[in-house]
Nucleic acid binder design. Structure first.
Lengths: 202, 202
DNA sequence: AAAGCTACTTAACCTAGATTAAGAAATAAT
DNA sequence: ATTATTTCTTAATCTAGGTTAAGTAGCTTT
């Protein structure tokens, strides 16, 4: 009588709007695509992927904030990426190779996610080749951002990297624990704290 | 009577072999693709792209070695990438946006290059959509490599980064000026020299 | 509301890597 | 062959950022 719960609450507006920026889908194609997506609501601190696991999904963030990170020698965390509303996150290495990666994916702020499984992504490429283009463009943009961040890490001071982070990700600055921002820009939480107060007193 | 010089010497074996790893092309498709490619032979130290220019081509390396790099405050160079036989190089930001980037591309070792122009790449996507897939996969692999390098820069010591560079790029270690390797792994040439001799005396 | 975590701050001290400078070795240019 | 440039080395000195440690503030959980 009723569609399953997940169809009732699944909001694909944001995702479809994002897709429409790069490719045009017919109504049928949209429906096919949506049938391949599932929703998941997650509380803060949920670990969606362990470093030892094989990544099976790409996660699109409808709301909330996630991060991906590694852990060194079982102690130090290094944040690779944050993802907030409208962004995708995953462990691309593990997703592509279907081997265990070394990234964790964690929910920072209660989130609603749309999941696209590896298998469905492959099916999608076969059935609607336009998605090759869509994910090509998405990946190109990620690569450009990553290269810039890499060069920033090689050439800017910690202060400059933090300022850049603030202007690029204003939505995150006050929502993400500051030690994670420290990790993202590549300094220890102690140094970050010192640096921040130094910047304030100027 | 004779085909233009560049067709006589253009060797597309390596490129076609690389493409065949990811997509299947018919003979006609191969020919169309090849008709969109041009060759260029360059001496060492040729600058193929200035930071102020708009990048118009993707460069496939048939032989030789190239690098891409930025220059900070008109003084310090930072190497983003090396490319040797079988690899592509370009300024992806500039190529995609068709705005001036801030990368230089330089020939390190006399090279033979195959050039795919931005326009031809777009035509290729229209005429042979399989190329969407090919470049998607290529870009995905670059992104994975870049993410790993980013995390390495955040978590490893200079020595560890150098060791990783040696095992990942043995073809480059003895062909690329050592100050450029220093730049790639993110240290000064002076420190690199010191570090290297320290590693030897152990 | 007390107890227990986790996040943030501050401060003293430490070190990997930067800077400066000068000479030696290797390449390139004449 | 000689000269000029660029690359590499060595060494002294310096500093951005790390480490250790202890205290404080802010959350959760009960």
């Amino acid at each position: 009588m009723f569609a399953p719960y997940r169809y009732l609450i699944m909001n694909t507006n944001l995702l479809l709007k994002n897709i429409a920026k790069h490719i045009d889908l017919t109504t049928e194609e949209q429906e096919l695509f949506i049938s391949m997506i599932t929703v998941q609501s997650c509380k803060s601190r949920t670990i969606l992927l362990h470093a030892t696991e094989i990544c099976k999904h790409s996660y699109f963030v409808n709301s909330g904030i996630l991060r991906s990170f590694t852990i060194n020698d079982n102690i130090v965390e290094h944040v690779l990426n944050f993802a907030c509303e409208g962004y995708w996150i995953g462990d691309m290495y593990s997703l592509l190779s279907q081997k265990p990666g070394n990234l964790f994916i964690e929910v920072i702020e209660e989130a609603e996610l749309l999941l696209l499984s590896k298998e469905n992504q492959e099916i999608l490429y076969e059935k609607i080749p336009k998605f090759e283009r869509f994910f090509r463009i998405l990946t190109e943009n990620s690569l450009v951002a990553n290269q810039e961040r890499l060069l920033d890490n090689l050439s800017l001071s910690a202060e400059e990297r933090f300022e850049k982070f603030c202007s690029k990700h204003p939505q995150l600055v006050n929502k993400v624990p500051q030690k994670q921002i420290a990790s993202y820009i590549g300094v220890t939480p102690e140094f970050f704290s010192k640096m921040k107060s130094k910047m304030l007193h100027r």
